[in-house]
Design a protein around this nucleic acid. Sequence first.
DNA 1: TAATCGTGGCA
DNA 2: TTGCCAAGATT
Length: 356
Amino acid sequence: MRNEEVLKSEFAPRLVQWQRQHGRHGLLWQTREPYRVWLSEIMLQQTQVATVLDYYPRFVATFPDVQALAAAEEDAVLGLWQGLGYYSRARNLHKAAQQVVNEFGGVFPSERIELERLCGVGRSTAAAIAAFCFNARETILDGNVKRVLCRLFALDGDPANKAFEAKLWTTAEALLPRNAADMPAYTQGLMDLGATVCKRLKPVCAVCPMNDICLAHLQGRTAELPRRKAAVAVKDVALYWLVLRNRAGAVFLTKRPAKGIWGGLWCVPCSESLDDLYALARDFGIQAEDLTEGIEIKHRLTHRQLMILPFTAVAGEQAPVSARIAGEWVAPENLAIYGIPKPLHSYLNAVQNSLF
DNA sequence: TAATCGTGGCA
DNA sequence: TTGCCAAGATT
């Protein structure tokens, strides 16, 4: 294992130097301010950089600091998060801001363990904040780092195996630079290398600073490492939407429960059962024969294939809303301030455009 | 602990 | 169209 010793002593110095020369430097969230780093890390979970570039500036402009975020309404936070996905991140972000204000005196803790107490902040995110903002010698372990490590050491473990996951953490820790001052560049380098060189498809090994010590490259196995995760079963789900408009053109929305898909967002009344949908309609004084069936919308999630069928109707001036359906009539011009599921947002836009 | 949670990009 | 996954965390 002589090669591994060389690898461990060479990796950090090479990565730090490479990051400074060839890494990414213009990203908006590359700062040492914990609030901004934290916000970016949450937004970037399972989300591509290009997507976050759309959301981050608006979010910071609206909530410039953790106090402003803590004082906000949850709906205002979800409204800015609309379309970004994984909405529990937004709800946890809001809670965590209140934790920072109420439990940490408005100041982010500097240690990884303390940061992990914040809602929505796991080990890797906590390590990123600690490393970027406080030079802490803590390692991140995201998809980029896992891929780099699996190739560097030719590790072909099962990604779903917990022992293998633990081995990756241990391996990553053993590679940390000696000098704590290098932690920001090192941490950024881990992500940059994985994102721009050691890519999942078509890695650019020719320009990789590790290509002479990377076992997968030396063995010609970069295409097969890391091992693929077991495919998740995609279930077909039928979803029926009750799209009600009053005479003023407002649409009826209800706030979804925190658990489950689109948790906390605002949506039209809906059900996976058509009979349930008819019952919901009757709560508004509308019979099944008064509903107009729309065109099916296909919406694919990671683990669900949704087939959404909208039913529309015009509700009376004084729609007798049942007490069991809490909600609001929202005028088209006010939709923007509500967090709305992507397919509903698209649907309402399409309907609106077809009317004018 | 394995399942759950969104949306978009790419091949 | 489909598979796979992206700066993962939670339950």
